[in-house]
Design a protein around this nucleic acid. Structure first.
Length: 651
RNA sequence: GCUUAUGUGGCGCAGUUGGUAGCGCAACUCAUUCGUAAUGAGUAGGUCGCCGGUUCGAGUCCGGCCAUGAGCUCCA
């Protein structure tokens, strides 16, 4: 992105534009304070540049970077308020984050009342219109400076910087904080803020170190923006699968059954079964998979061969006691080794490869107690798992196929635009956690990178996210709260065939080691259901709905006709229900809408006489009167094509 | 696992300083037979998450456990 600053300096900046980059140029004298700038040849609303002291000057509030600076300054005001009310509190760090800011503080837990009191103090500080000023100290001097104040966490941060570093601080009134900036020129610039919540966080994210209190807050340039954001927080709660999914009777949890073990209720089960049948059908009929059904548990010996016993024992449910019992079993945390033995059951020739196995596979993972969440993090779940045993020369084509299948699935569900791609690599700093050497990892990671690049998919690379046996392409989705989960994974594994002595007979008559691709096409059914609930706020595409049509007789007199219509729909493979209670039609419609049923068929005297149905849909409202045959044809087509009809009617 | 909050009929909630549980919706019954988002009346339903303690007496106070939410850590 090219920016022409007012004094005529033209500079190319990387997109997205970073205020910090511009700030650096300002401090080096390349630019100076300005309230207007030309972006890509035309004047833009870029009015958030910084002056020589790294102060942000703001006229409009549309830049995310500007918001970041505002929120960072707001976090300093919070820290100042904390020190005024609780002088003994020690400060850790206080950055701006995606939707606000936080500050980690070493102090006893804060209640909502404490937060309210802090908000009041913050308002005072803002009103005092304290100038925010930058100053710098040599490293040793800086350490002495913060230690005099008892700020041990700040001292640790400075000690981690190089010997010759110049340490910058910002001062506002009596309050000084270690900080690289930039900041607003004064506290008065903070017009609209709110402390959202507080909770515990570990110092430097290490669960063995100090437990700090993290106060979350947010700030905006305009009061309306803050109010809109707070309203948005309320709105997303209504989409939250963990609330909506229970309300809609898709799933439930029961204390006595246990944590992370949700029950899929009839409606949720129906949806999951529709997904499952679809995935199995396309994998087997269109993508060349064979289906397996393998045991949910095995002797520990199996996991010793696969490496899971060494690498993952804590995450498995082990049945039996290694000391006492002759045989110890474990519930499976993955399907890999089971399918390897399916492959090994008969000798394979190079002609048999690729050998693609799919299994709708239930897995068990003993997550720690605080990690369970709704349907997205559970102890037992079912995935569309699969393993492709391939010749090395088939790797590229098969990896592409896996990615294409995943994208086809996402596209069909209407979720394609909501995902991000991640190349999950090993952590070169912790090599002992992984199988194989550097050359293996570099080449496997390179192969996956090429697949993503060839498809021109934007992706980020992440160290330390790989499986212990190989790198992954992970397809990530965010939930309504912005938290990311892996939905689909494709992993290349060139190491494990050796451990299980898997081979094929090549053209030259020699035994060769195959590669293995571990992959999912839709991933975890429970997680996907959760994602769909949040994406559609419960208003699913018709083909996925547990109840696709509800027939509503005007009165008992037309119940027989309603039943006939319902039975015709059922016979045509449509999940149809009927509301034959002695209620008014308005009441039945209200309930059907609250249940988010896509199609309501009102039938009364006129419809019975003409053998029609009066169609009211969730999408378009009143769709008029249609013959039974015409409606059956319409809805069967919609279901068959998995059409996602647009919602045109406000709920 | 860690910090913190919460747990009252199916759901959403009320329950004052400890004195034998209430409301709305839903359910059920009866009446109503109705034309596109709530017909009316009545009935029933709870050892207040579980276990223990303090007390003459515990939904209320204390302890332990279980579950749920938020966040941290973790997610092979």
């Amino acid at each position: 992105m090219k920016i022409t600053l007012k004094d005529g300096v033209v500079k190319e900046y990387a997109a997205p534009l970073s205020v910090l980059d511009v700030a650096k140029d300002i401090s080096e004298g390349l630019a100076r304070a300005t309230l207007g700038a030309e972006v890509d040849g035309k004047m833009a609303d870029f009015r958030t540049l910084l002056d020589r002291d790294c102060h942000l000057h703001i006229v409009t509030a549309d830049s995310p970077a500007a918001l970041g600076v505002l929120r960072h300054s707001c976090s300093h005001v919070l820290a100042q308020a904390v020190k005024r009310i609780y002088p003994e509190a020690k400060l850790a760090i206080g950055p701006s984050i995606e939707n606000g800011f936080y500050y980690d503080i070493d102090h006893a837990p804060f209640s909502r009342e404490d937060l309210d009191a802090l908000e009041e103090e913050m308002k005072k500080i803002i009103k005092e219109n304290l100038k925010i000023e930058k100053f710098e100290l040599e490293r040793a001097e800086a350490i002495r400076f913060v230690e005099e104040k008892g700020e041990i966490y700040k001292a640790e941060l400075i000690r981690d910087l190089p010997e010759d570093a110049v340490i910058s601080f910002y001062r506002q009134g009596e309050f000084v904080d270690l900080c690289a900036g930039p900041h607003l020129p004064s506290t008065k610039g903070i017009k609209a803020f709110k402390l959202i919540s507080s909770s515990m966080a570990y110092w430097r994210g290490d669960s063995d170190r100090a437990q700090l209190q993290r106060i979350y807050g947010t700030a905006f340039f305009k009061k309306e923006d803050l109010e809109a954001y707070l309203e948005h927080l309320e709105d997303i709660k209504k989409r939250d699968h963990n609330k909506l999914g229970r309300e809609m009777e898709l799933f439930a949890t029961v204390d006595v059954i246990g944590q992370g073990l949700p029950l899929l209720l009839p409606k949720g089960t129906k949806m999951v079964m529709k997904l499952q049948r679809w995935i199995e059908d396309i994998e087997d009929r269109e993508w060349g998979y064979v289906r397996t059904k393998t045991p949910l548990m095995a002797k520990s010996d199996l996991y010793k061969i696969s490496g899971h016993w060494d690498h993952y024992k804590d995450g498995m449910f082990v049945l039996g006691d290694e000391e006492k019992d002759k045989e110890v079993f474990a519930l499976r945390p993955m399907t890999c080794p089971f399918q390897y033995y399916v492959y090994k059951n008969t000798q394979k020739s190079y002609r048999d490869l690729p050998f693609r196995m799919g299994e709708t596979s239930t897995l068990f993972r003993n997550e720690e107690s605080g990690e369970m969440h709704g349907l997205t993090r559970v102890r037992q779940f079912t995935i569309s798992e699969g393993h492709l045993v391939i010749r090395p020369d088939q790797a590229e084509e098969e990896l592409q196929g896996c990615l294409n299948l995943a994208i086809h699935v996402l596209d069909t569900l209407g979720l394609k635009d909501d995902v991000s791609f991640r190349l999950s690599k090993w952590d070169p700093e912790n090599r002992e956690k992984y199988l194989g050497d550097e050359a293996y990892w570099e080449s496997a990671q390179g192969a996956l990178r090429k697949i993503l690049q060839d498809k021109a998919l934007p992706f980020k690379e992440a160290d330390g996210e790989a499986a212990f046996y190989g790198p992954k392409i992970d397809i990530q989705a965010k939930n309504v709260y912005g938290k990311e989960d892996t939905m689909i994974t494709i992993q290349l594994d060139c190491a494990i065939a050796d451990m299980f002595d898997m081979y094929y007979i090549d053209k030259d008559g020699e035994k060769k080691r195959p590669y293995i691709i571990h992959r999912t096409s839709l991933g975890c059914y429970e997680r996907t259901l959760a994602w769909l609930i949040e994406k559609y706020a419960g208003k699913f595409p018709t083909w996925l709905c547990a109840e696709q049509v509800r027939v509503l007789p005007i009165s008992d007199k037309y119940a027989e006709y309603a039943k006939e219509v319902r039975d015709i729909l059922l016979a045509n493979g449509v999940d149809a229900g009927m509301d034959e209670r002695s209620e008014k039609i308005g009441f039945k419609i209200r309930e059907a809408r609250l249940d988010r049923v896509p199609y309501m068929l009102v039938v009364g005297e006129k419809e019975e006489a003409e053998r029609t149905v009066s169609v009211r849909s969730r999408f378009a409202g009143d769709e008029g009167s249609k013959s039974i045959e015409a409606f059956v044809e319409q809805i069967c087509r919609e279901i068959r094509t998995k059409e996602i009809r647009k919602e045109e009617v406000q709920a």
